[in-house]
Computed example of a mutant assay.
Amino acid sequence: MKKKVFLVDVIPTDTSPEKMKSRMDELENLITTYGGLTIVKKYQRKAIPDYKTYVGAGKLEEIKNQMKIEGCELLIVGNTLKPQQIFNINENLRSINAQAWDRIDLILKIFEAHAKSTEARLQIELAAIKHMGPRIFRMGMDLSRQGGGIGTRGKGETNIQIMKRHIRESEKKIIKKLEDHKKTRKLHRQSRKNKNLDTVGIVGYTNAGKTSILNKMTKKQSKPENKLFATLGTTVGKLWIQKDDFSGKEILMNDTIGFIQDLPPQLIDCFSSTLEDSIFSNILLHVVDSSDSRIKEKIGVVDDILEDIEANQERIYVFNKIDKIDNNQLQNLKKEFKHLDPVFISAENKIGLEQLKQKIIELI
């Protein structure tokens, strides 16, 4: 049975209605991907978030009462909260047997559900430790006061030390294991280089159709899903391109995690080893959903993240899903994004794939 979710998004007072809607739509998509059911959603315009509860004491009480009436067991705050804020909110919700997550908690839960490889699971565990650690320290401070006050050797103080040590040790072990995966990945890249195998990294906003493109172009059988973050690890397929002189070339294509707006830096850091395959690819395919109403914004999000991870090689903009738009929309896109020199395709219907292959071989 799906969890009933109360969703609240706190936004700056000057946020446009379009931006408000796009943020809420994405949050709802995240909840759907997780497996929850949004029962109530609310916006709150607030110039400065409340120091103690982010939403403010009065608003939190209002939310709690409505959650009780609607039978909601989970409150999602569509922002990144400080440890003290999420702790205080959860303390308040205990009386109705409900709990609260912030946006990072929700994304981590989705990552956890979709992680298949050992490396992806380790990366998620590391991200969770980095996100949850400060909260545990906050709880430990409360225990310390209960155990005899600051400066004493009460039970609470001992608990703080135990939790800190456990977190540090766990983090070190995970980082060591990830370093081993990183070394293996580097060896694989060197092996490909020695064999003169070129690589193409497939990147893009989550749910843009990257996996479908990989499948159609390489005969890979990865299962594309209509969910955010359906791909967490790196999937590799082989593309054979026939040249005009009847010679051919084998190229490796890497499908990696999809990006999202306001993706927290610690999540990008924790997935850096997975994203390395994109950083070290010869070229990048930046996949865009042609039917998306927020194309320009999402292209900007992906470009910014690629800049952050220093993936600055040549890229081909691939406008996918043209089967979902009419000819007028297609012509408008061609005109608006002419400066990107994009290739327009439908991976689902195998439209434009030969043109894309030709562009790849030209750049390679």
Results as ranks from 00 to 15, higher is better:
L330A: 11
E61F: 05
G35D: 00
E336N: 13
D308C: 06
E348M: 12
K220N: 15
N90E: 13
I241H: 04
C72D: 04
L93Y: 07
S281L: 08
I305P: 02
D245K: 11
V8D: 03
I39A: 00
K335L: 14
I31V: 01
R23P: 02
N226C: 10
K176N: 14
F271L: 07
K176D: 15
T235I: 11
T53C: 04
L333V: 05
T218A: 11
L81V: 02
V301E: 14
E61M: 09
T15Q: 11
K249A: 03
K357T: 13
T33D: 00
K219E: 11
V288Q: 12
D277G: 07
D14M: 12
R189Y: 11
A120L: 01
F319R: 05
K321I: 14
L37F: 10
L37I: 05
D14I: 13
V203N: 03
I39S: 01
K19P: 01
E354Q: 14
H286R: 08
E169S: 15
R294G: 09
Q44D: 08
G149H: 11
S16W: 05
I39L: 01
K216C: 09
A57Y: 06
Q313T: 07
G36W: 01
E28W: 01
F344I: 10
G56R: 01
T13F: 09
F319P: 06
I361S: 06
I48T: 13
I76F: 01
I160D: 01
I107W: 00
E70R: 13
K219R: 14
M139S: 06
E28L: 00
A100V: 03
K359E: 05
L143E: 10
D289R: 12
L106P: 02
T38D: 00
I174W: 03
G151F: 15
K4D: 01
K130E: 15
G154R: 10
Q85V: 07
E307M: 06
K350W: 05
K338W: 07
Q261H: 13
E314N: 12
F344L: 04
L126Q: 08
L93V: 06
I96C: 12
R189Q: 14
K41T: 02
Y43E: 05
N312G: 04
L356Q: 03
A120M: 00
